[in-house]
């Protein structure tokens, strides 16, 4: 079922897509060129903004340093563990609040109140409680990451069409059957959007934790290079972190397309 209207048929549509893609690439190249040229002209101090080529070299050399894989692994673990625990926690609490109305009425004010707090304020506290090691960073990642999953799980489960529930009731389905065969799968596209946000948040949580107090990890390196005014290396760490964030996001995007094939896409 192709959607064809008289104004933009498929060929024009595809050609337009290409124009936009080329345009985006063009803008990207322009930004990199500007980044390269500005420090050389002296308009921007090269110490504050090293040219792009220097950053590229710094990235290459950094990745070859013997200490680098250790720092990468530390941060990567914090992100992944924080993301998984946060997702499971959000899912569990979200389901509990959605299927148990009195729990929701009791807990909801706290949920809303907690949501209003900028969670980053807890970072120094977690260092005091859980030490300078990975635990405090994982806790930070969990605290930030579980929220979007919790909210989306509740919203998703509460948006199940009443006719679908009624259909199941007319078949004398048990509450458990209604949950697994209808409600959960109906909520899954919405839950998964929360899971995608959770990954980005887990990256933020781990890095913020490392900023506040750590002796290892990419956040520690970034902080260190910043103090040493080795801005080229600081940028190199940023590029690595951006890559981790983007890779996770697109991996989840791919999983979403593969497993939640029934999602309405515009």
């Amino acid at each position: 079922m192709k959607h064809v209207d008289q104004w933009t048929d498929n060929t024009t549509q595809r050609r337009q897509d290409w124009y936009f893609r080329l345009g985006a690439i063009g803008i990207g190249i322009a930004i990199l060129a500007l980044w390269e040229v500005l420090p050389l002209t002296g308009l921007v101090n090269p110490i504050i903004l090293p040219p792009f080529s220097k950053v590229a070299v710094a990235l290459f050399t950094l990745m070859q340093q013997p200490f680098f894989p250790g720092h990468l692994a530390v941060t990567f673990n914090e992100i992944i563990i924080g993301f998984i625990i946060g997702t499971l926690l959000g899912l569990g609490i979200g389901i509990a609040l959605a299927v148990w109305p009195s729990a929701k009425r009791l807990a909801y004010p706290f949920v809303v109140g907690f949501q209003a707090i900028p969670k980053i304020v807890f970072a120094p506290l977690f260092i005091a409680w859980f030490g300078f090691g990975q635990t405090s960073k994982i806790v930070m990642a969990v605290v930030i990451a579980f929220f979007p999953v919790l909210i989306n799980t509740m919203v998703g489960l509460e948006s199940v069409p009443s006719d679908a529930r009624k259909l199941m009731r007319s078949l004398k389905a048990t509450p458990l059957q209604i949950f697994w065969k209808v409600s959960f799968l109906h909520a899954l596209p919405i839950i998964f959007a929360g899971v995608q946000a959770a990954f980005t948040f887990a990256v933020i949580g781990a890095i913020v934790g490392e900023f506040v107090g750590s002796q290892e990890g990419l956040g520690y390196l970034l902080n260190l290079y910043n103090f040493q005014l080795r801005i080229d290396r600081a940028f190199a760490v940023i590029v690595i972190l951006a890559t981790i964030g983007a890779a996770g996001f697109f991996l989840l995007e791919w999983a979403d397309r593969k497993f939640i094939f029934w999602r309405e896409r515009s």
């Binding site: 679908a164 259909l167 007319s170 065969k181």
Partner: peptide
């Protein structure tokens, strides 16, 4: 058996 105004398909 019960039928609704919409198909209510999963």
């Amino acid at each position: 058996g019960f039928m609704f105004q919409t198909a209510v398909l999963l």
